[in-house]
Design a protein around this nucleic acid. Structure first.
Lengths: 363, 363
DNA sequence: TTGAAAGCGTTACCAT
DNA sequence: ATGGTAACGCTTTCAA
């Protein structure tokens, strides 16, 4: 209502004009250099002087001007986080919020700023590339790359530290952090085997993405090690979506009516599959056990609740930052890879055949 | 693998040492001042000189040093986006990704950077406040405020432009953008009335949040204007979660067994309600029609798909930026409020009593 | 251990 | 229309 006050009265420190290093130096009766040393925690300052300066800093409410500092140190103390996602995963499970939280926490602990970049259009991407290439950030985290994106290569070529979230489809020589999708899938299918299921189908994701093919490999691994036959009729493909899961399930039921379990590459696909199974008169979990992947909130709201594979997404964010910070601070250009392990969260959608059990809220 | 190359060869422009204004001036045979004018699009430059400078800029791949610019202009050309969400909404529907997308797009169009801040701990919040108060950003977007957060007040008192996403619970004199929750709720309940439902319950959200109370008000509005009696037994409360929706539904069934429709304050609550209704032997939508709020992805995966109220979240992000940019550029300190209208998305969960219809995928 | 002074790359004012 | 020249606030040698 009447918020203009702050503009005219001079009581509060003038906006955007905090105390400078010089002011603190005067107040403490020392030189700018000394204040700078104190502020930056240099050991070469006598305890008494340090105390005096610290008091002056407090009295004046001094805060360093980052622009000035950045100008001389040639560091921005900020990292760019680039999220290029058409729309899919972005809006269907809380992957990005969780990842950002993980990244943000680790960045904050290192006093680094998070500059978020979400290009949508082609011009956006060009401006983005120019921005990143001109050294406005100390490093870049790339999150969901299109397969053929030239960005990581360009950045690397310019010597800008880059880490990638999720194994890139192309074999670019960049550091990345990924979830061990293959192992997660293996665990999910082993679980179904241990339940006594023998005709286990998979609804796989797109094979041109590492997540897609890795989860399929894991499925095949588990079948092989259990001595179960590899049957193409039990494999169908989709794009991680509800609709594609439903239609893949229809195909499987048609090709292999004796299916008694389903491992879906995403919870969304699993949900689609469950609705088709029900429509086809199969009971879940009695007739067909179902396991998903992602452990999204959806897994708790389906009926029955969905057994799923949980990924340490926040941790992935933290590791991305650690890798990047190493590259920045220690000028490490070695390519490193981190693989994070998953956790199977059993819920009511997967039990032994023809015998129900109540097992909700497994996580 | 062998990525060290970029470090030693001198072919590419040296990292972090782009051409300076001075270099361009030399190359173009003019003064720094002139180059600066060209770069900043000043009209007071002759066409020929402008062309020469532009060519020099291209040749040298000149990009302005933001730190240097910022140091003299006292502008950071960046805005802080603060998301303080315990965990609730953050992880259960794609509200934040959508909002960030909207914010990011509008910011990019104005060449402003998005600095994302997600404080988790108490110390985090203190550092956050110091950071924002020391003028490192030109303005701040606050997204999901706790009721008693002192942050907006502190920022405003220091003359830092602030806009808030979602009407703040306390009546602080700050600009905000909100969804017209009351009107959305009204539309949802009118829809149920028009279907012929007469015993319409609501599962409300927490009343200490504007979203919660607004949606409840809307429900009451619609009942009143339809001449339907106000019956406390038809009102139950929860916290927007699945579990709380389920338990609220249980209470309603118990207190008012003749309930024939439910308006839930969130899709999650609606999903919880549907599972309870089914367990109680009520058919959805035949016996009880259900409408949710948010139009989250969940609404499409429930069985039956859920009628819901869609909010223009991206648009909200855009408006937040517009308001903020006005405050920054034109030094407008006037408090302004924007209310965004919602849209009812009919799906199969709400039909006329005792008569089924197939109406999925209404969006 | 402390201080003086030289930049860092821009912008903006004042002449011309 | 163009150029010279102070700032802007900080870090970092180099001396003392």
């Amino acid at each position: 209502m009447h918020r203009e006050s702050a503009l005219t009265n001079g009581a509060t420190p003038r906006v955007g004009r905090g105390a400078t290093l010089d002011a603190v130096a005067h107040e403490a009766g020392v030189s700018r250099a000394t204040v700078s040393r104190v502020v930056n925690g240099s050991p070469k300052v006598s305890p008494e002087v340090r105390r005096q300066v610290e008091r002056a800093v407090d009295r004046l409410g001094y805060v360093p001007n980052l622009a000035a500092r950045s100008l001389v140190t040639r560091r921005s103390d900020s990292v760019g986080v680039v999220i290029t996602e058409p729309t899919g995963r972005l809006f269907n499970d809380p992957f990005f919020p969780r990842l950002l939280r993980g990244i943000s926490a680790e960045l904050a602990a290192r006093k680094l700023q998070l500059v978020l970049l979400m290009p949508e259009t082609e011009p956006d991407e060009e401006r983005l590339e120019r921005y990143l290439l001109s050294g406005h950030v100390d490093g870049v985290i790339l999150v969901s790359l299109h397969g053929d994106d030239p960005l990581p290569g360009d950045l690397l070529a310019r010597g800008i530290p880059v880490v990638i979230g999720g194994r890139p489809a192309t074999g670019i020589a960049a550091s990345y952090v990924d979830v061990d999708n293959r192992d997660g899938a293996r665990a999910a299918v082993r679980h179904l085997v241990s339940l006594g299921r023998r005709r286990i189908a998979t609804l796989a994701g797109p094979l041109d993405m590492a997540v897609g093919s890795d989860r399929l490999e894991g499925y095949r691994d588990a079948l092989a090690e259990s001595g179960l036959p590899h049957d193409r009729r039990l494999e169908a493909h989709g794009e991680f979506t509800y609709e594609s899961g439903a239609s893949a399930m229809r195909r499987v039921i048609h090709a292999a009516p004796d299916v008694d379990a389903v491992f879906a590459a995403s919870d969304l696909m699993a949900a689609g599959a469950m609705s088709v199974l029900r429509a086809a008169g199969r009971r879940v979990p009695e007739d067909v056990a179902v396991v998903g992947f992602d452990d999204s909130p959806l897994a708790v709201t389906t009926d029955p609740p969905l057994t799923s594979v949980r990924q340490p997404v926040e941790e992935m964010g933290g590791d991305l930052v650690r890798l990047l910070a190493d590259a920045i601070d220690r000028e490490i250009r070695t390519v490193r890879h981190v693989l994070l392990s998953t956790e199977l969260v059993p819920r009511a959608s997967s039990v032994a055949p023809a015998q129900s059990r109540d097992n909700a809220h497994g996580g």
